[in-house]
């Protein structure tokens, strides 16, 4: 069976001043339809890069990212737009900052606008999802006025409103109350199970991963996974070379 999303031999690096930092070094990762994957990693371990690649927001330096077997890098802008509109929803906790004055319902509704719906239809749908996530009472408030807990739910609602098949969440709930965090993750798991949405969640806290199907840790350019298929234990060429030399 073709996985919903697969990262094949993906590498990505950035430059830090003149120095090249390899964030992902020949990485493999599969996410099957309806399966939830949690990525644990310390700060600056490359979680966000991995997620942005997985969502098709950024493109890899080498390797391929496939959604249902189709290479995202080779898609046209319209197809990629469709991908983000219909298939993959990306949630980042800082997303809303471009327009802090927007009301909650509008914030959720605008994400539907790329699909040719009228504002009224979009609002109606947004309200439905907000109700579902228990966030309907703050529908008319402005995004900037919400509490972190409320905002986390609204951002989730915004992603869910598009009924994606894959939900990619980057550190969605570093909430002040531990109970709120637990509840948020339980809600997320519940919705994903019910709607049969695949999850890709990254956090710097392992508790955020609880209850997910596959655990992956990311560090030093590589992934370690409980699912052996995605586990990369082989050493990438460069390092093997180094290791061999040391071994002589």
């Amino acid at each position: 069976m073709t996985p919903l999303l697969s990262l094949e031999n993906v590498s990505k690096s950035f430059f830090d001043g003149g120095r090249r930092i390899v964030v992902l070094d020949h990485v493999f990762l599969d996410v099957d339809a309806g399966v939830s994957v949690g990525v644990y990693g310390a700060r600056r371990s490359g979680k966000s890069t991995l997620l942005r690649l997985a969502a098709g927001i950024a493109l890899p330096d080498s390797g391929a990212i496939r959604f249902e077997g189709r290479d995202v890098a080779r898609m046209s802008s319209r197809e990629r737009g469709r991908l983000l509109r219909r298939e993959i929803a990306f949630v980042s906790a800082t997303d809303w900052r471009a327009n802090p004055g927007e009301s909650v319902v509008d914030h959720v509704a605008t994400s539907l606008g790329s699909d040719g719906v009228t504002m009224r239809e979009a609002r109606r749908k947004a309200m439905r999802v907000l109700h579902l996530l228990d966030a309907a009472e703050s529908a008319e408030e402005s995004m900037g006025a919400l509490s972190l807990t409320e905002r986390a739910r609204v951002l989730l609602a915004r992603a869910l409103a598009r009924e994606p098949r894959l939900l990619v969440l980057d550190e969605p709930a570093l909430l002040p109350s531990l109970g709120d965090r637990d509840r948020f993750y339980a809600l997320l798991r519940g919705v994903a199970r019910e709607w049969e949405i695949a999850l890709l969640v990254a956090s710097e806290e392992m508790t955020a991963l609880q209850g997910l199907g596959v655990f992956v840790s990311i560090a030093d350019g590589g992934l370690v996974s409980t699912e052996s298929r995605a586990t990369v234990v082989s050493l990438p060429g460069r390092r093997r070379h180094a290791a061999e030399r040391v071994g002589q």
Partner: peptide
């Protein structure tokens, strides 16, 4: 992974 999740 073996640890059961809390229902929150």
């Amino acid at each position: 992974q073996l640890v059961g999740p809390t229902d929150g």
